[in-house]
């Protein structure tokens, strides 16, 4: 049994990611049990952990701190594959500009920045949030990229982006006015700014890889 825990700290809709993981588990013919939970014991007993997040970072960090989710994620990162998604990825960084400045978990070196109100490209104004399907350039090999063509389009929705300090962690880059970190990887954690659970075939391929990943490179 492949046990997957999706950490529920009260921020947003976790149904989509749970459904998508169940779907790819079934496709693999693998017995997969997905639990959406805040319970540290269940998360500790899981084989794989997903750290999602939507909404404003201040609210997310408040709940993460209140429920001690940082320690839960830190423990999981030591022993098993972890996938952080969207604001989950941003929460791993040191600091975010959102909500007047919010300290994050600091598990990865880098900042979360605002796209800006006057974002322009080729004389055209770019809308914020960055919402829709954009290409991800794979800057490093990684087991989670297996079978995912380079420059595939994934579904994004965010107004703040991650700028990793240590580019050796960066496994994918997307361009929207600026180049930003679309994915990061370090030891057995993989983080995506996009939503694999909403990115149709390529997103499901990434989740399928996650279910089979042992955390090594």
């Amino acid at each position: 049994m492949n046990k997957v825990a999706v950490i529920d700290y009260g921020m947003g809709n976790l149904h989509s990611v749970a459904k998508a993981v169940e779907h790819v588990g079934a496709e693999l013919g693998q017995a997969t049990e997905v639990t959406v939970t805040p319970d540290p014991a269940i998360i500790a007993a899981a084989d794989r952990v997903i750290f999602p997040g939507v909404g404003a970072i201040r609210d997310c960090m408040a709940e993460i701190n209140r429920l001690n989710v940082g320690e839960i994620v830190a423990d999981a990162m030591k022993t098993k594959p972890v996938l952080a998604i969207c604001v989950g990825m941003q929460a791993l960084m040191q600091h975010s500009e959102e909500n007047g400045g919010v300290d994050c978990l600091g598990f990865m070196q880098g900042e979360v920045k605002y796209f800006g109100d006057g974002l322009m490209e080729d004389g055209q104004r770019l809308k914020v949030p960055h919402m829709g399907w954009n290409q991800v350039r794979q800057t490093q090999d990684h087991p989670l990229w297996q079978g995912v063509p380079d420059n595939s389009r994934f579904y994004f929705v965010h107004s703040y982006y991650v700028q990793a300090e240590d580019k050796t962690m960066e496994t994918g880059v997307t361009h929207y006015g600026v180049d930003f970190s679309a994915t990061l990887a370090s030891d057995n954690i993989f983080a995506t700014q996009f939503h694999p659970e909403k990115s149709q075939a390529v997103g499901l391929a990434l989740l399928r890889n996650f279910l089979q990943w042992d955390g090594s490179r």
Binding site: W133, N134, F156, H175, Y176
Partner: peptide
């Protein structure tokens, strides 16, 4: 590389 327009 750019954001795609969407069909819904």
């Amino acid at each position: 590389m750019a954001l795609a327009k969407r069909i819904i």
